[in-house]
Design a protein around this nucleic acid. Structure first.
Lengths: 202, 202
DNA sequence: ATTTTGATGGTATGTTTGTACCATAAAAAT
DNA sequence: ATTTTTATGGTACAAACATACCATCAAAAT
């Protein structure tokens, strides 16, 4: 048989093509043909590696969820070890605010998937449940630590506050995607709010 | 000619059918046929009153935006005149949290439209820009008033805080739609956050 | 009474989409 | 050397869709 190809690499190549295709015209306009063209392969090959469109969409969604985790972890690492909680929390939450074109495309598709998964039974469930829970636990830990050291307002409830932070982050990110605010405005507002959660000691 | 029908009524009837159809299977699954069936009219009639699918979708979106305004205004009125700012603000923001099935369907379609309008040039622009700006101005006014009377923390910036409130509201509403939280949890968190914006005087 | 016009039904058509089917070259396994 | 696999291309096909077209009936206008 020919070349004996690396399946995972091929699949990744095709999924990336799907994501590019979705980025420019929306997830709803993704078709077997558009993916094939973007990946520069025949439609038959897309079938060969993913069988059905449903499976292809699901694989892309899984990849997206994985990438989201990597992005957040990358932000955390980039702040360096032993950074104060406020800086870490800020870094994590700012991930939801799309700045450059790349991050805008990423978050747009992610959001389209999230909304689609509400009505599409084939996409229902899995990967959107784990990530937020992890994030929440992480934020609770950071807030609890900050409260102990006096960096955070002792009156705040770490758990409730973590949920608020996630909501603010998601809400601001969405508003930027919808063109209601600029990334800069969203960033400023998020920083303002963090200023109230982590007050400057007097 | 026959009956000489009220066009606006017919259009409203068909749009409602579209919204019901979108509620059960998602906006992406809405088709001329599905709308016609749901409205119990022929496909030809849907064409007759809306010409093209694009115009139909646009009309439904406009109606949705209008209804959103009505919903919020209704909430404000329901609290009665001369209510304290915190109660009014709470009422307005809780509108974004879907509780019953009706409100869930409404917000789901609204969100689907919002996301779709990012990539679909036919839907781009108009009705999603006015509403948030109005809301923002309203919240700023309420916060400013509350700060003057001492009901709200004097340190807060009314404008930034208004944006935070909108983001929290939208973020929580979205998380409920996605099934990450229950409406009850979202309500509790929103109330908690309002408790920090409007502290109980000591 | 006749002509126009508004409301509606049915059907045809061209396009797009997902998927199934047939074919083949080439490397591996025997 | 022959026989399997494996990767790939091309094409065919049925379904669904939006829309255009043709037809009709009845009320209004004349």
């Amino acid at each position: 048989m020919p070349k004996l190809v690396d399946h995972e690499e091929r699949r990744a190549h095709i999924i990336d093509a799907l994501l590019r295709s979705a980025a420019s015209n929306g997830l709803h306009s993704v078709t077997m043909r558009s993916v094939a063209v973007e990946a520069d392969v025949s439609v038959r090959l897309v079938q060969y590696y993913f069988d059905t469109k449903e499976k292809l969409l699901l694989a892309a969604m899984t990849r997206l969820a994985t990438r989201m985790g990597e992005r957040v972890r990358h932000r955390v690492r980039a702040t360096g070890a032993g950074t104060d909680p406020r800086t870490i929390v800020e870094a994590v939450l700012l991930e939801a605010v799309p700045t450059d074109e790349e991050s805008r495309a990423f978050h747009l598709i992610y959001t389209e998937y999230a909304v689609l998964s509400v009505t599409d039974p084939a996409l229902a469930g899995q990967p959107f449940l784990a990530a937020p829970d992890e994030m929440e636990a992480f934020l609770v830990a950071q807030l609890t630590a900050a409260r102990r050291t006096g960096d955070a307002d002792p009156h705040l409830d770490p758990h409730q506050e973590a949920v608020v932070l996630l909501a603010v982050s998601a809400g601001l990110g969405l508003s930027v995607l919808l063109g209601q605010r600029t990334a800069h405005q969203a960033t400023t507002v998020l920083r303002y709010h963090l200023g109230r959660v982590f007050p400057t000691r007097t």
